[in-house]
Amino acid sequence: MIAVFLTVAAGGATGSLLRFAVSNWVSAHWPQHFYLATLGVNLLGCLLIGYLYGQFLIRPDIPLEVRAGVIVGFLGGLTTFSSFSLDSLRLLESGQLPLAFGYAALSLLGGLLATWAGLSLARF
């Protein structure tokens, strides 16, 4: 069980560092569109989790350490609902109501669609 904890921790650290790097890059290049970093990693994470979940269903022989390290660790560290919530709140507080609601809707619907697309790719 210690191997599972270690792979989840390593995956989480890697995913968190990647999210941090993407956020810094977007903020440096498009500061007025800070929310695109969270949207991008969340949509990518949804696509990947759908695809990997499908692959893991097809290949139950893949070790638990790998499955947990990637899904719970890496993707859990990469995507985060708390960042999405903060970005939405910042847009609302700055009076950008249409953008805030559009961002929230696109994040939710886009995330569901990306997860479905990833699972469909895995089944293909």
Rank of each mutant, 00 (worst) to 15 (best):
L99G: 06
L78P: 04
A122S: 15
L113E: 11
L89C: 08
G12V: 02
L52H: 00
L89I: 13
Q96P: 05
R123E: 15
L47W: 10
I58N: 04
P63T: 09
Y103W: 09
A21V: 14
L43W: 05
P60D: 00
F84L: 12
G12D: 02
A37G: 07
R90T: 13
N42T: 02
L112D: 13
L52F: 06
T38Q: 08
G95N: 11
V22Q: 07
S82V: 06
D87W: 08
T14I: 12
F34P: 08
A104S: 14
L36Y: 11
D87C: 06
W116F: 12
L92I: 14
R123S: 09
A21T: 09
V66H: 01
L57T: 05
L91K: 05
F5T: 00
L18D: 07
Y53A: 09
I2K: 01
L75G: 02
A117E: 10
Y103M: 10
A37S: 14
P60H: 00
L75F: 04
T80H: 08
Y103D: 10
F101G: 13
A21W: 15
L119K: 11
L18N: 06
F84V: 06
F74Q: 03
I71C: 07
V72W: 00
A9S: 10
R90K: 14
L64D: 00
S107L: 07
G110D: 10
V70R: 00
L78A: 04
S27A: 13
L99V: 15
L92Q: 09
L17M: 15
I2M: 01
L113H: 09
L108A: 14
L44Y: 03
L17G: 06
W25T: 11
A28T: 08
L108S: 11
L99F: 07
V8G: 02
L99D: 07
R59P: 00
L109H: 10
F74D: 03
L17S: 07
H33K: 13
G69P: 02
G110R: 12
T80Y: 07
G95I: 08
L57A: 08
A13F: 09
P63S: 14
D87P: 05
G76Q: 03
F20I: 05
L109E: 09
T14D: 05
F84N: 05
L99Y: 08
Y103F: 11
R59C: 00
R90P: 08
G111Q: 12
G95R: 11
S83K: 05
G54L: 01
F84M: 08
N24D: 13
L78G: 04
L6R: 00
Q55L: 14
A68R: 00
C46P: 04
Q96D: 12
T14A: 15
F34K: 07
A10M: 03
R19P: 06
L109M: 14
Y51S: 01
Q32P: 07
F74I: 02
A122I: 06
L119M: 11
A68V: 00
A3E: 03
P98C: 12
L52I: 01
R19H: 06
A37T: 11
G15E: 04
S94T: 15
L48M: 10
C46M: 04
